[in-house]
Design a protein around this nucleic acid. Structure first.
Length: 153
DNA sequence: GCCAACGTTGGC
DNA sequence: GCCAACGTTGGC
């Protein structure tokens, strides 16, 4: 049984277009520095899990594409890179603190804006719609996934 | 730029 | 283990 996720990315850093243009249409999901989000990638994600590609911190936040998890989790290389803004002095190579998965962009979709999702009663309970939700990776129920991908996108 | 909500840190 | 202070996220 595949699981489904919503993953936020700042389009200035990596948009759905950037992901589609990457080699293999695949990008490493670097920079997650929240334990809950890390644990989803490290402990729960499986290859071929479905991903709603969400643009955050931009003019029109919302879902802009569909992607999927590829491969097994591995340590985020940016945590050991002193020149990276994600460098973590506390993390040691023999005990990495931050893990990630690779994400392959499948296709760009019509924008499904946050404002649109908020006004759709069928999406009640979607975690990204919760007040004050800041978590950059959230699980999506199969029912919500199917409704979003087959009816809204 | 503002600020509410949340996560983390560290003193006690 | 509590909780105040602080830093960050992210929509608006």
């Amino acid at each position: 049984m595949p699981a489904y996720w919503l993953m936020k990315s700042e389009p200035d850093e990596c948009s759905i277009d950037d992901a589609l243009a990457a080699p293999g249409q695949t990008v490493p999901w670097t920079g997650v520095r929240n334990y809950q989000a890390r644990n989803f990638m490290w402990k729960q994600m499986q290859p071929e899990d479905g991903v709603l590609f969400y643009h955050s911190s931009c003019a029109e936040p919302g879902i802009y594409g569909i992607a999927q998890v590829t491969g097994a989790p591995y340590p985020d290389p940016t945590q050991f890179d002193v020149s990276s803004k994600y460098f973590d002095t506390q993390s040691k190579p023999d005990a990495p603190r931050w893990w990630l998965v690779d994400v392959r962009a499948v296709r760009k979709t019509i924008p499904l804006l946050l404002s649109t999702m908020r006004s759709d009663p069928q999406l009640e309970g979607l975690l990204v719609l919760q007040k004050g939700s800041r978590l950059s990776i959230t699980p999506v129920s199969p029912a919500h996934w199917h409704y979003i991908t087959t009816t809204l996108l």
